[in-house]
Design a protein around this nucleic acid. Structure first.
Lengths: 338, 338
DNA sequence: AGCTGGCACTCTGCTGTGTTGAGTGCCAGG
DNA sequence: CCTGGCACTCAACACAGCAGAGTGCCAGCT
């Protein structure tokens, strides 16, 4: 096991490297941190830390930089979560309070997170697996063409066109609308298929085809809705990556454009509590030199979606984690209120 | 005025520079293009072109690169619009045909444009200034809480919560819904304010407050809807900017994140026909080393929104213009069909 | 008048060579 | 177990020399 002081040395190395972006040597370390020992001793400690794989040297006779494993130890054992200042909290509150609808909430959250952490922010839309249908609306666009609108309790609205196999009368339409709502309003997405199963039978033979088509579209819409969507922002912060960034930035941008990749990324994180994935711990290759800090958020006790940031492994973990956690809490509050 | 051959020299310089990304000299030019004259002659022409400000040398004894003004002349006089290949056209068609709703159409368009041009794509959502209201829906969420849903003919759906000053009965609600729709359905946004002006008067005194509130929210929603939104994609293509890109990429990413900036950018373009803004012609400072190629698109004859790409001034203008124009056409078709 | 070959000149970019300095590992002594 | 000392390594920088691409200009040719 590593001695207390060696851990302290590792902490110092991480802090300095994060600050200066340059390999840190034994002398500089003793000067900046009062470790109470000489550079030579620190050198021995460093050798041990390197032996264990927590730090590495880019080349002989250069200082050390933390490895992914070093960062891992740092966030697990050495770093706390830095709480935000009162001013920052108030700023978050104010900024989020102005949101008018769900898109706006998510949009503001992304911008907020990006600004606060100075990194790339990713916010997943509230998931709908546990959400309920608030209302279903049916409109007639043409004799054999309907529009189906589904409104969810998280404030999402989705609409689909439906081409009917046969013309569909206004009274039948009103009938279907009423019955549909009485059955599914307030129910969970997952329950809907059962609830509407026998609906076609209660209609005239002529109309059954249309009713079935409408129901099929409804179910399809709900499934699609369950697939999470997300929003990203703060990509300009990618330029803070470091000097070698031309090589690194490309795959990151590519990964960020693929929603599937990001969803998988967030999906890999724990459902509750904060998750930090460092460098190669990320499954996606392009993100091997980035770290992802994510956390679930939700309106009630349970988390309905996740949000987080993507940045260089060389990041200020305590600060970033603090910001991510704080933002998640406030967003949860906002969602609960609306 | 510039002689025919000098224009030809300029064209050759632009083409070579776009291809190689390196200053092009007189000798290389005569070798690659059969201009029928010697390097010495070309040198004289180059001197003249430089005199006029169409080309410049990064430093003495280097080749020439086109200036913004040079590119301008190139696209105005020397370059055609390169039509897409049949295969490309079919690919566009297929890809866009799969779209299920407006968001999907826009999303696919962005990806398509980015891939086709290998640049950053920007697509504005169909503008609603000329669009009409298809349907207005009112739902009761709680005794004194309503939800207002507005559906437009371009397939957009927007919803707002309305807090009523007083409880509002179901019959009054149905009444309001019916009257509202009979007045505004099929009408243009701009006409709505007039059409609903006197609506509160026809209701019971108790309900007038609520009716006014609903109307106010409706008008507000329509105004907000008129403010265009947009989607961008292909930011990974920014890495193709060139060697000096760390300096350039930052302001570009920042500009791209500010929807306002992009909207202004597209707004500056002509309503009809293709617009190419080169380098410093762009008002926004961060985009001074980029060119923006944009064009209006729409379902019918008139353009309801714009789309385009942002790339380095050193871009393949004919190809880019061809792709942008083609995509705009197909999107217009898709919108017209749905 | 306009084009061409020739020539002297100017730079950037590459390569090779010291030189510097931060940083290391190791060891003997406290 | 810590410390000071010492020899060693190696990236980074500066400097010089060279090669090559490119230019401008001029005298001669068509």
């Amino acid at each position: 096991m590593l001695s207390e002081r060696r851990l302290e040395v590792l902490r110092a190395i991480v802090q300095d490297y994060v600050g200066t972006e340059e390999p840190v040597g034994s002398k500089a370390l003793t000067e900046r941190h009062s470790l109470g020992v000489s550079p030579a001793t620190v050198r021995n400690d460093m050798a041990a830390l390197e032996e264990e794989g927590f730090i590495a040297q880019p080349h002989t006779s250069a200082g050390r930089i933390p490895t992914d494993r070093g960062y891992r130890l740092f966030v697990d054992k050495l770093a706390g979560v830095k709480p935000l200042s009162g001013a920052e909290r108030r700023a978050i509150q104010n900024f989020l309070d102005g949101a008018v609808d769900l898109d706006d909430v998510v949009g503001r959250t992304v911008r907020l997170l990006a600004q606060l952490t100075r990194q790339v922010a990713v916010v997943q839309y509230p998931s709908l697996t546990r959400s309920t249908v608030r209302h279903v609306e049916l409109l007639s666009l043409a004799p054999a063409r309907l529009m189906l609108v589904v409104i969810t309790d998280t404030g999402r609205v989705e609409q689909r066109h439906v081409d009917c196999p046969a013309p569909f009368g206004d009274t039948a339409l009103a009938d279907l609308r009423a019955r549909l709502n009485s059955r599914v309003a307030g129910r969970r997405f997952s329950d809907v298929p059962q609830l509407v199963q026998d609906l076609p039978e209660s209609f005239e033979t002529d109309d059954r085809g249309t009713v079935s088509t409408v129901l099929a579209t409804l179910l399809e819409t709900l499934v699609e809705e369950t697939e999470e969507r997300l929003m990203i922002g703060g990509t300009a912060n990618l330029t803070r990556f470091g000097h070698d960034f031309p090589l690194v930035i490309r795959p990151v941008l590519e990964a960020l454009e693929e929603q599937v990749v990001l969803l998988k990324l967030l999906g890999e994180a724990k459902d509750s509590g904060m998750t930090v994935r460092i460098g190669h711990e990320n499954a996606h290759e392009g993100l091997n030199s980035t770290s992802v800090v994510s956390v679930g958020y939700g309106s009630g006790g349970e988390a309905v979606a996740k949000l987080g940031v993507v940045g260089p492994t060389r990041m200020d973990y305590p600060g970033t984690m603090g910001a991510v956690r704080a933002v998640a809490r406030y967003v949860g509050q906002i969602l609960a209120e609306s």
